[in-house]
């Protein structure tokens, strides 16, 4: 553990038998190198001691601003990045340190939906090939059977089999995102990581895709790791929400409770900052001051203290640990500390 990071406890609810994903004390540092010899001069602490669990059929929302590390968490879980340390247990298998062949078999059980589906598609591929590609890559289907499966998947996401021979540019942003979801579902995954999957869509289309994700979850029993910056969207789709700030989860709990009654000053700032959260001029916003410091040089003590409206002496020196702040809820703030309430691992 680095000296400034709090001893990271498993955030949120207690472990359960039906956990699909369990992330414990995950750390990812990116070295900043300089000079010909590539001397490491600093580390960007993109993810610095993150723990969470996702049950089967459950949605965990991760919110945070740019640089909070939420997308890095997604890439670590999907093994697109190697962790610096920590554990990732998926369906009972420890993924860190797993051999490539073994990992490949597990990998088709977890898929990702990106913000910009067009960037993930080869513009010269027909939709049948776009959706069929993961089937062929994992040797699940080929030729006619891959095409048949692609057609089924298109219908599952609300498009039609006749779209199979079209090309990506013939679709609107909302339709393209449906295709992105169909492609992610091709290998029948249990976990879908949605990284800002609805953020670029117009609101009328965003609602369509959110409804689709909820229907698919119900029908297929999917678990979602839903990463977004829009708190209202995250609350709507998530069972639980984790709030990230500079590489750490600062608060975690059931979505409704967490947003109706945020406990950490950062979550309170986020909730207050939602434009139109109240009638104009009716409230004093709890505003985080200034801007987030660089994750390569996070402040000592509590990482939020430089922006916190409630910071006091201790916040500058000592990093607060994640503690239970109610049934099934944790937050890391000295102001919320009461003796004997430290969250159990």
């Amino acid at each position: 553990m680095s000296s400034v990071a709090a001893p990271a406890r498993a955030a949120g609810r207690q472990p359960a038998e039906d956990d699909l994903l369990c992330v414990r004390d995950l750390v990812k540092h990116f070295p900043v190198t300089r000079g010909l010899l590539g001397r490491t001069v600093a580390n960007v602490r993109a993810v610095d001691g993150v723990s969470f669990r996702i049950g089967r059929g459950e949605t965990l929302g991760l919110v945070g601003e740019s640089g909070s590390g939420k997308s890095t968490v997604a890439r670590l879980v999907l093994r697109l990045l190697r962790e610096t340390r920590g554990e990732i247990v998926f369906a009972g298998h420890e993924l860190t340190g797993m051999r490539a062949g073994e990992l490949k078999r597990l990998r088709r059980r977890m898929q990702i939906v990106f913000q910009d589906p067009f960037s993930a598609f080869d513009p010269r591929m027909s939709i049948a090939d776009v959706i069929g590609e993961p089937l062929r890559a994992h040797r699940l289907a080929d030729g006619r059977s891959a095409r048949r499966r692609a057609g089924e998947l298109l219908e599952l996401v609300g498009l039609t089999g006749t779209d199979l021979d079209k090309y990506p540019h013939q679709f609107s942003g909302g339709q393209a995102q449906r295709i992105g979801i169909a492609r992610a579902l091709a290998t029948s995954p249990e976990l879908l990581v949605c990284d800002e999957a609805v953020s670029a869509l117009d609101v009328s289309v965003q609602a369509q895709v959110l409804n689709l994700l909820r229907r698919l979850q119900r029908e297929l029993g999917l678990s979602y790791l839903f990463i977004a910056h829009d708190l209202n969207v995250v609350r709507y789709i998530s069972d639980r929400v984790g709030v990230m700030y500079l590489g750490q989860i600062v608060e975690e709990g059931p979505a409704d409770e967490l947003l109706a009654d945020p406990r950490h000053p950062y979550t309170r700032s986020l909730a207050a900052a939602i434009a139109g959260a109240g009638p104009p001029g009716s409230r004093r916003r709890v505003l985080a001051r200034g801007e987030a410091p660089s994750p390569s040089d996070p402040p000592a003590g509590c990482r939020f203290h430089t922006r916190c409206p409630a910071a006091f002496g201790r916040c500058r020196e000592e990093a607060p640990a994640l503690r239970a702040v109610g049934p099934d809820r944790t937050a890391s703030c000295h102001l919320l500390e009461r003796p004997g309430q430290e969250a159990r691992t």
Binding site: V203, S204, Q206, A207, Q208, L210, N211, R214, R215, N232, V233, R235, Y236, A255, D256, L259, A260, I274, A277
Partner: peptide, 15 residues
């Protein structure tokens, strides 16, 4: 179509 803190999570969004 825009979810708000008051949106009923049990119901689909109006599209």
């Amino acid at each position: 179509a825009v979810p708000t803190p008051a949106t009923d999570k049990a119901l689909p969004l109006t599209v």
